[in-house]
Structure formats: structure tokens, C-alpha cells
Simulated assay, not measured.
Amino acid sequence: MKFTLAEKPRYWWPVTVRAPDPENPGKVIEQTLRVLFEPRDQDEERAEQDRVAKITDPAEQLREDRASLAAVIKGWDDVIDTEKSSVAFTAENIALALKQPWFRAAVWEAYYESMSGQEARLGN
């Protein structure tokens, strides 16, 4: 396959979220979804990391960290609500999901993994 040069590449990537199991105290469950990423280029990513790191207020830094991640997420698939209905990708829904620390950690991990040039690890 030939290399495709795109100014704003987009790609789907698997994400495995390890969340607390509501039925079994002290256990975790793995939940999977796919995320559509539009990554920042290397210079933009470094500048964004530096910008967020310079924020001294912890609450503001956390908000900006979530906003930074939300900016590279352009869609999702395989997300359902507690009634097993599909959840649309919206700014409000991604903001809600990113407030869950296990979701945010899993998506950050998948994002950096996707930019490493390695295939996704089984179980992420």
C-alpha cells in the first residue's frame, strides 16, 4: 500500500476502557468502543502539551486536559447507554464521557498508541 499524505488525517482506533464493575466490588470490566481520531501534527501536539502543563490551577488543568483530548476526537462507535441504546457522538456526550477517569485514561492511551506506528495491542 502506498503512503497517503493527508493534511488532516482521520482514522478509527479501538479503545478498551477498564471500568469498575458495578456488580462485583473490587473488580473491573473491559468495555470496548471505536474512536475516530484527527490527530494534531507533531508541532501542534508538543505546543498543546506545553500549554496544558503550564496551567497552575489543578481544576483548570483538568478541564483543559479534557478539552485537549476532545479536540482530536471526531466520532465514536459502539457506545451505548444504560438502556442499551446507541449514544450519539455530540460535544455534550464526549464531555460527559471524558469526566470519567477510566474513559479519559483509556482514550489518551489509545490516542498515543495510534500515533506510535504500532498496531493496537489486544486489550489496549
Rank of each mutant, 00 (worst) to 15 (best):
Trp102Thr: 11
Ala59Leu: 14
Leu69Thr: 08
Ile80Trp: 13
Ile94Arg: 05
Gly75Leu: 04
Asp21Val: 06
Glu60Asn: 12
Ile29Asp: 08
Val17Ala: 09
Pro58Glu: 10
Trp13Pro: 00
Val52Trp: 06
Arg40Val: 04
Leu36Gln: 08
Arg63Cys: 06
Phe89Pro: 07
Val87His: 05
Arg34Asn: 11
Glu45Val: 01
Lys8Thr: 07
Arg18Gln: 12
Asp57Cys: 04
Trp12His: 00
Ala106Cys: 03
Thr16Glu: 05
Ile94Phe: 03
Gly123His: 05
Ala95Val: 02
Leu33Thr: 05
Val52Lys: 04
Gly26Tyr: 11
Val72Gln: 05
Tyr112Pro: 05
Val107Trp: 00
Glu83Ser: 15
Arg40Phe: 08
Gly123Ala: 02
Leu62Thr: 14
Val15Ser: 00
Ser68Glu: 13
Gln100Arg: 15
Thr56Asp: 15
Ile73Gln: 06
Pro58Ser: 10
Arg66Ala: 12
Thr82Ile: 11
Lys27Gly: 04
Glu44Asn: 05
Gly26Lys: 01
Pro39Gly: 04
Trp13Leu: 03
Val17Cys: 08
Ala88Asp: 14
Glu7Asp: 12
Glu113His: 12
Glu38Ile: 02
Val15Pro: 03
Trp76Glu: 05
Tyr111His: 09
Trp108Gln: 13
Pro101Asp: 09
Phe103Met: 09
Pro101Lys: 04
Ala67Met: 04
Pro58Gly: 10
Lys27His: 14
Glu113Arg: 09
Glu92Gln: 14
Pro101Asn: 05
Ala105Arg: 14
Ala71Glu: 15
Pro22Leu: 00
Asn93Lys: 12
Val17Phe: 03
Ser114Pro: 02
Leu69Ser: 08
Arg51Pro: 08
Ala71Pro: 09
Ala105Ser: 14
